[in-house]
Amino acid sequence: MPGAAILGTGLAVPAHTVSNDDLAGWLDTSDEWIVARTGIRTRRTVDGTDEATSDLATAAARAALARAETAAEELDLVAVATCSGDFVLPATACVVQAALGARRAAAFDLNAACSGFIYGLALAAGMLATGAARRILLVGAEVFSRHVDWHDRTTAVLFGDGAGAVVLGPGDDVLGTSLGADGTRVGDLLIPAGGSRRPVDEGALAERLHKIRMHGAEVFRAAVESMTAALRDAAARAGVRPADLRWVFAHQANARIIAGVAERLALPLSRFPMNVDRYGNTGAATIPVLLAEAAAAGTLCPGDLIGLTAAGAGLTWAGAVLRWSGAA
């Protein structure tokens, strides 16, 4: 599916670092326990600031625009993939659009949870292919720290805050995408209260229904299986084999999920760039943050075939295969 080229990448993470030892200060857990089960050592949070998702998204966007040598006024669309936006209403993308001064741009949010960045990439590629847009800013951004139950040791250790952005223009980087969902699994990972189903009333607060709930074992297994299948399908649509992929940028939720995906695809783990140890799970931000780090480090060479794969709440999953054309 031709349509999009990545012109520039950027990332932003908050300054405050929370280590596993910090968490062990108030939770019944330990650095060894968390590292063995997740691979996570630290995560960044907006703790102690008034920063919101749009602040991280805007900072990542500015970096991507600079590397793409694109002015905000050139943007036709600002799309933010997030499930932890500034407000229930309106879209975080509108806050970002204003902060950037992207006056010509349409703006909306996209919620496919941790799969959101790849969903957005597929959508953006389609718009670029039809000429509906010529410059698109796609951001994955989350502030999960405001939604985590910091007294639930099964979830508190997993999440962090961050944002990654790409500037997209017409081109042929995106060779194939694969999107999917299983809405029968809504209950496996959700924030029950705060939407139209259940307001945040006193009862909800008492039951902590306004915080992230997860069935860890079920989600772990679904993530390994669906991320593997999504990447296989995207590769087939792109006309390549998984073995042809130089790099696989996999959603950074848990190092053991990524190891499981690598094993099933019979690919060496060395092809999977990782930063879950430093940032934890930053939702829709993990893949663009990884891409921005790899681009800045010079890890990616023009012509490299790269895979993207993610799974998240919904459940949703998504895969993509790109040929890197040399963006910064």
Binding site: A217, E225, R256
Partner: peptide, 15 residues
């Protein structure tokens, strides 16, 4: 084993 290792074992069994 930890709880995730049991999940991994079941998945290996399936394969």
């Amino acid at each position: 084993a930890d709880s995730l290792a049991l999940v991994e074992l079941v998945m290996a069994l399936e394969e």
